[in-house]
Each structure stands twice: as structure tokens, then as C-alpha cells.
């Protein structure tokens, strides 16, 4: 029973979503189910938050490695929750202030740090060992060069070539990947709806 009910829910939910696409009469049912899906899935963020707090409280309690920074995480979390819940999230409120003045710069910095790491990883990993690897290198180099003013200064056609690479071979490659992934998604979805794939239930009982 512990496995049968979840499998039945998966089957019914999956079939409703497929039917609502083809049978107009079931469309409202599908729309309601999508709303339920969004609500239930959004509760996962609470699971993540509880888990984060659990990990950091555990680290503090047992004085694990770098435990001294765990109160910072908890304080940051608490500050956002308290200000957001009790003072509102409208522009000008403390929640919005902390978001724009602290989170946005930190987020941008974190992602910009990746520029250094991606470049250094590429320098170590990319080797022009064969002609296809060389093609990958050239393609990356031209796209990068085409997006900065120095590219056009070296040769006026570099931005055009860069744009062509993005619009033609890149489009073709991305489309092939996307179509292939969509096929795989259909196969996996069918396996899930019909209860063949059960790993998401944490293994069979």
C-alpha cells in the first residue's frame, strides 16, 4: 500500500495532464492540477530551509569544521524571514533594501567569480589534441572575441562571424540536443506514469 497509493497518484496525475492537452473537457481539471503542482512543489523550499538550518545548528552544536560561520548563515536567513514576514517586501522596506544592496551585489560577484574559474579550467582542460577539439577552441575564441570591442578592432568581420556561429552551427547543435533530450524526457515520463521508474519514491519497499 505504501507504494501502491503513490504510484496511483502518479498515474492519475500524469494521465490528467496528458488528457487535458487533447480533450478540452478535461482542461479545467488539468489547470487545477497544475496549480496544485505549483503549490506542493513550492513547499520544497521549506524543506530546503529546514535542512539548511538543521545542518548549521548541527555544525554549531558539535563544533564541526568552520562552525563559526554557521551563525552568519542563520542570522542572514533570520534577517530576511523576519523583515519579509513582519515588515513587508515592498520597495523601500528593509527586505527590499537587503535584497538590492547586499544580495544583488553578492550574487553578481559570485557569478562573475566563475569567469575566472571557467577560464582557468578551460586553460587546463582544453587542448587542441585533435581537429574537433581545435574547432571547439576556435569557436569559443571567436564568439568571445566577437562580443568585445577589440574583436571588431582586429578585424571588422569578427563580430559577424561570431553572430553567424551563434545563429547557425550553435543553433543546429542546441536544437539537436534539445530534441534528443525531449525524446528522452518522453520515454522517462512514460516510465514514471506507468510505474516502471520508481526511484523517485526512494526505492521499492
Amino acid at each position: 500500500m505504501r507504494l501502491a497509493i503513490p504510484l496511483m497518484i502518479t498515474f492519475v496525475a500524469g494521465m490528467i495532464m496528458i488528457l487535458q492537452f487533447f480533450v478540452p473537457a478535461t482542461q479545467s481539471m488539468g489547470e487545477s492540477l497544475q496549480e496544485w503542482y505549483m503549490i506542493v512543489a513550492s513547499f520544497a523550499i521549506f524543506l530546503g530551509a529546514v535542512n539548511l538550518l538543521h545542518i548549521h545548528i548541527h555544525k554549531i552544536r558539535f563544533k564541526a569544521r568552520n562552525w563559526k560561520y554557521s551563525p552568519v548563515t542563520i542570522a542572514g536567513f533570520a534577517a530576511m524571514i523576519i523583515t519579509g514576514l513582519f515588515l513587508g517586501i515592498e520597495p523601500g522596506k528593509p527586505f527590499d533594501y537587503m535584497f538590492t544592496q547586499m544580495m544583488v551585489p553578492m550574487g553578481a560577484t559570485m557569478f562573475s567569480l566563475l569567469a575566472f574559474f571557467v577560464a582557468s579550467a578551460a586553460f587546463r582542460a582544453f587542448r587542441a589534441s585533435n581537429w574537433r577539439a581545435t574547432l571547439l577552441l576556435i569557436s569559443a575564441f571567436v564568439v568571445m572575441l566577437g562580443r568585445v570591442p577589440i574583436g571588431a578592432m582586429i578585424w571588422g568581420k569578427i563580430p559577424l562571424i561570431s553572430e553567424w556561429i551563434m545563429q547557425v552551427p550553435n543553433l543546429a547543435g542546441q536544437r539537436a540536443v534539445m530534441i534528443g533530450a525531449a525524446m528522452g524526457m518522453v520515454a522517462t515520463s512514460l516510465r514514471m506514469i506507468f510505474g516502471i521508474e520508481r526511484s523517485y519514491l526512494g526505492g521499492a519497499d
Binding site: I45, F46, G48, A49, L52, Y69, S70, V72, T73, I74, A75, G76, F77, A78, A79, M80, I81, G84, L85, I89, F95, M98, F99, M102, M103, M106, G107, M110
Partner: peptide
């Protein structure tokens, strides 16, 4: 880093 993680989690909850 720890502050960013905590604030991000709080932000997404709210």
C-alpha cells in the same frame, strides 16, 4: 559566502 547562502534561502522562502 555563508551570509549569501543564508540570505538567499530566506529570500526564496519569503
Amino acid at each position: 559566502e555563508h551570509l549569501f547562502v543564508g540570505m538567499s534561502a530566506g529570500y526564496w522562502v519569503i
